[in-house]
């Protein structure tokens, strides 16, 4: 896949998947999922160098770690549509006996998932470990990770941020989803964090900002810059400014849809705003 229109069509389909998945089980996290749809689509279909065998040994390809596991709907949809498992399996999201648990896990053997996440703040440490393993294996592929901005309130992140800079983990691109929202309100209201850019820079990271985090071309351009900064003795942080709930007007610019599913009427409106492109599961 290469042209922007195709990636945008896929993004629209992913949004439909997200809405339908959370609606069916009346639970899950649509807001953050919608906000990161473009990022996931770009990452899995354009940015990462992935093996087409879908084996999970972690060797000889770029790897991705989702730290804020609650946005599992977007992760599952993009993995399925990238070929990791049948798209029809999205029907089982959060149901009993499913591989698509509420939060992603390796425990049920779902291809594409490399570590369990959901309890926040742990993903960057895991990504750093995987990055160090790549170096030991003389594998020049990169490690990507995604973290919520609210998630940075967890202290373990700062242990990891300090370690990565201090030990020149420069094969790592950690993206922060800067949507400014968390469960109880805006991040500024819940716990003001000041400048995340300055914090990462103060810890010794290279920071790349993507102002239009819901624009495929802007993401591709920004990540290309980030990639060019790897291998230079510093870990790379991408600050991705996104809109929570992007693509569904009544879900945008609010924390209200962080962990709430749409009802039948709301689903219909959301789907109307995102017409079927590649076919529903």
């Amino acid at each position: 896949m290469s042209n922007t229109q195709q990636l945008e069509d896929l993004t629209t389909q992913v949004r439909r998947d997200i809405l339908r998945m959370v609606h069916k089980v009346n639970s899950g996290h649509p807001g953050g999922s919608l906000g990161c749809a473009e990022f996931f689509v770009a990452l899995y279909n354009e940015i990462m160098d992935r093996k087409d065998t879908f084996d999970m040994d972690g060797m000889g390809e770029d790897l991705f770690f989702l730290s804020n596991g609650h946005i599992s709907p977007v992760f599952y949809s993009v993995l399925a549509r990238a070929g990791y498992f049948p798209v029809e399996e999205l029907n089982t999201f959060r149901l009993i006996d499913s591989r698509l648990q509420g939060h992603p896990t390796t425990h049920e053997g779902l291809p594409g998932i490399r570590v369990a996440s959901g309890s926040l703040g742990q993903g960057m440490s895991v990504a750093i470990g995987a990055a160090q393993a790549k170096k030991l294996n003389n594998d020049s592929h990169l490690i990507y990770s995604l973290h919520g901005d609210g998630e940075l309130q967890e202290g373990q992140n700062w242990e990891a941020i300090m370690y990565a800079a201090g030990n020149k983990v420069d094969n790592l691109i950690s993206t922060i989803d800067l949507n400014g929202q968390q469960i109880d309100g805006s991040t500024d209201d819940v716990l003001p964090m000041g400048s995340i850019k300055e914090k990462f820079e103060a810890f010794g990271w290279t920071v790349v900002e993507i102002e239009k985090g819901n624009n495929i071309e802007a993401i591709l351009k920004g990540i290309a810059i980030a990639k060019s900064k790897t291998g230079k003795g510093k870990p790379v942080c991408v600050l991705l400014k996104t809109v929570m709930g992007n693509g569904v007007d009544f879900m945008m610019h609010t924390h209200a849809w962080h962990g709430k599913a749409p009802n039948d009427e709301q689903l219909a409106i959301g789907l109307e705003q995102n017409a079927e492109t590649l076919g529903d599961y």
Binding site: V126, A133, D139
Partner: peptide, 27 residues
């Protein structure tokens, strides 16, 4: 090259160990 001093940061140490297994290491 196979030793990682993580400093006084046990949570990060456990997470890194988990990540190292993904490249086939035994941490």
């Amino acid at each position: 090259e196979r030793f990682f001093q993580v400093g006084i940061a046990e949570a990060n140490m456990i997470g890194m160990a988990a990540g190292l297994t993904i490249g086939g290491k035994i941490p």
